Computed example of a mutant assay.
Amino acid sequence: MIIVMKAGAVKKDRDEVLKRIKELGYKPHVIHGTTRDVIGAVGDERGKLVLQTIESMHGVESVVPILQPYKLASKEVKKESSVIAVSDTVAIGGRQIVVMAGPCSVESERQIIESAIAVKAAGAHILRGGAFKPRTSPYSFQGLEEDGLKLLAKARTETGLPVVTEVVNPETADLVAEYADILQIGARNAQNFALLKKVGQLRKPILLKRGMSMTIQEFLMSAEYIMSEGNQAVILCERGIRTFETATRNTLDLSAIPVLKERTHLPVIADPSHGTGNYHYVAPMACAAVAAGADGLIIEVHPDPERASSDGPQSLKPKKFAVLMDQLRRIAPAMEREL
């Protein structure tokens, strides 16, 4: 159920409603709107009709059932798009198209600093880089772990770029949160419910990638796991799904962008690097994602992709990334956005 407060409701009214929701055995989540607050009451579906009694409380306009299985992520709860602040200067979901760029893995101080300087010079807003790497093969490079996190923090100090990096298990989530501005949940962990619950308890924005075989509803239910723990700052990322096609690493599902924008208030970005697996296709798919309505992009950029420890074939060199950023600057105004 969602409890819609009246436009003139005061804090005392809202606090009384929150108290009553808890008394009835439900967990309240306050969503601040532009003109009024909405409170999501989440819990056992079987007894939700008792929440209708809240409609008579002072300051309450209406009590409405949420039809979608994903409650807090649904546009039924919040009509306007959410804008998630990452730093004092960067927010995702507004007019600006936010670009995250950097190497797949942090390999050395020189590599990550050089990458950070290059992507910032081209106009990127956030530095990406993996310190913990969940790999299909146990023999592949697994990342520098905490040493990699320290190098990302140093790159942030050098450039001022906020950092997004992946968290791979609940045990290291707090450690990653000490260094990162955004915590990334990768495709392989998109239904790791223990991890989703853990990051939901942290107060950092979460970049949630779509699982490689996930339906859109399953994707939104994973976002719901995070939000139900109290963290409403979730950014969705379409990164390609597994199909029968072998010409690309994955099939980048650009149709998911407008579908998600219709169903949820959460920001949606695209990952054309993992979506295609080939640097030749990254730029055209990045442009297409912006045209489809994406709020941002996450792109792999490496100063020497031929020697990259992971995902070299899909990484752009800094010069090609700079050309792409120029293309995006021309496309953004056509979508009533800016870069």
Results as ranks from 00 to 15, higher is better:
residue 73 A to T: 09
residue 71 K to W: 08
residue 71 K to Y: 05
residue 126 I to S: 12
residue 21 I to T: 03
residue 151 L to K: 13
residue 138 P to K: 00
residue 234 V to D: 07
residue 172 T to H: 04
residue 227 M to L: 02
residue 286 A to Q: 10
residue 66 I to G: 02
residue 5 M to E: 02
residue 104 C to F: 12
residue 278 N to A: 14
residue 315 S to G: 06
residue 112 I to R: 01
residue 187 A to E: 06
residue 139 Y to D: 08
residue 80 E to V: 14
residue 333 P to L: 13
residue 203 R to D: 15
residue 150 K to I: 05
residue 214 M to E: 03
residue 171 E to R: 15
residue 249 R to M: 07
residue 192 N to W: 00
residue 18 L to M: 12
residue 204 K to W: 03
residue 205 P to S: 10
residue 266 L to E: 08
residue 310 S to I: 15
residue 180 A to H: 12
residue 332 A to R: 07
residue 9 A to C: 05
residue 337 R to T: 05
residue 4 V to A: 10
residue 196 L to H: 03
residue 294 A to T: 04
residue 227 M to D: 03
residue 97 I to D: 03
residue 70 Y to W: 15
residue 265 H to E: 04
residue 180 A to V: 09
residue 135 R to H: 04
residue 71 K to Q: 14
residue 196 L to N: 07
residue 305 P to F: 05
residue 3 I to D: 00
residue 248 T to L: 09
residue 297 L to D: 08
residue 261 K to I: 06
residue 36 R to L: 11
residue 203 R to E: 15
residue 209 K to Y: 02
residue 87 S to N: 03
residue 307 R to Y: 13
residue 312 G to W: 05
residue 171 E to Q: 14
residue 299 I to M: 08
residue 310 S to A: 15
residue 231 N to W: 08
residue 258 P to M: 03
residue 62 S to V: 03
residue 253 D to A: 02
residue 308 A to F: 05
residue 81 S to C: 05
residue 134 P to F: 12
residue 113 I to Q: 09
residue 298 I to Q: 13
residue 149 L to E: 13
residue 146 E to M: 11
residue 88 D to P: 01
residue 95 R to S: 14
residue 167 V to W: 01
residue 244 F to H: 11
residue 312 G to S: 05
residue 92 I to Y: 03
residue 284 P to W: 13
residue 76 E to R: 06
residue 238 E to W: 03
residue 167 V to H: 06
residue 132 F to R: 04
residue 284 P to A: 09
residue 25 G to T: 10
residue 28 P to K: 10
residue 337 R to W: 04
residue 27 K to R: 14
residue 87 S to V: 02
residue 10 V to Q: 13
residue 136 T to E: 11
residue 144 L to N: 04
residue 142 Q to T: 06
residue 263 R to A: 13
residue 332 A to V: 01
residue 269 I to C: 04
residue 113 I to E: 09
residue 109 E to Q: 14
residue 147 D to P: 00
residue 56 S to Y: 13
residue 280 H to V: 09
residue 69 P to N: 13
residue 106 V to N: 02
residue 194 A to Y: 14
residue 296 G to T: 11
residue 55 E to P: 07
residue 202 L to P: 08
residue 322 A to V: 08
residue 318 P to G: 13
residue 116 A to R: 07
residue 4 V to C: 10
residue 224 E to K: 07
residue 2 I to N: 01
residue 165 T to I: 02
residue 127 L to V: 07
residue 164 V to D: 11
residue 52 Q to V: 12
residue 21 I to Y: 02
residue 148 G to A: 03
residue 242 R to K: 14
residue 56 S to V: 06
residue 125 H to L: 08
residue 137 S to P: 00
residue 42 V to I: 15
residue 298 I to G: 11
residue 153 A to W: 00
residue 249 R to Y: 09
residue 300 E to F: 11
residue 75 K to G: 11
residue 71 K to H: 15
residue 115 S to Q: 06
residue 206 I to N: 03
residue 319 K to G: 04
residue 88 D to N: 15
residue 186 G to N: 07
residue 263 R to V: 10
residue 122 A to D: 07
residue 145 E to V: 05
residue 171 E to A: 14
residue 109 E to C: 04
residue 324 L to G: 10
residue 306 E to L: 14
residue 59 G to R: 01
residue 30 V to K: 00
residue 127 L to K: 04
residue 178 E to C: 07
residue 141 F to R: 02
residue 120 K to R: 15
residue 131 A to N: 06
residue 9 A to K: 03
residue 184 Q to C: 09
residue 287 C to F: 01
residue 176 V to L: 13
residue 8 G to Y: 10
residue 91 A to V: 01
